[in-house]
Amino acid sequence: MHEFSIACEIYEQVMATAKEHGATEVKHVTLQMGRLSHTNPEQLNFCFKVLAEESIAKDADFIVEMIPPSLECDCGYTGKVDEKKIRKNCEFESELLAYAAVMECPACGKPAQITGGRELIIKSIEIETEDQD
């Protein structure tokens, strides 16, 4: 469980940016999360809420956009994994495992290098500021 330390980093970054822009309230925090990262969005949201309890971000909602894995292959292919194949593999209970099992190049079928899908990006925040006269 490392969601708490990640939530700390997100909280610090969000609060610094909010302060810099004169926010009176943080409404939304939008995250982009790679499907292969070992981070649980619900746990992360819970940890953030605990940290933000007495701050201007206490009512902030998390919006999480998932990023599919991307690949690079010796044959020259760069791009996403074959989503159709993932659906075929859905007897796997874990989505992570389903993705890991199909890290083959959609062009030549050989195992490919994972180049993306493990990110955790604070994409943007939505804030409220006082009216400026």
Binding site: A23, I121, E126, I127
Partner: peptide, 16 residues
């Protein structure tokens, strides 16, 4: 009250 969207693009893992 004014609403703003601030782009951040801060990758937590990239920082590590």
């Amino acid at each position: 009250m004014l609403m703003h969207v601030i782009d951040m693009g801060h990758d937590v893992y990239k920082a590590n």
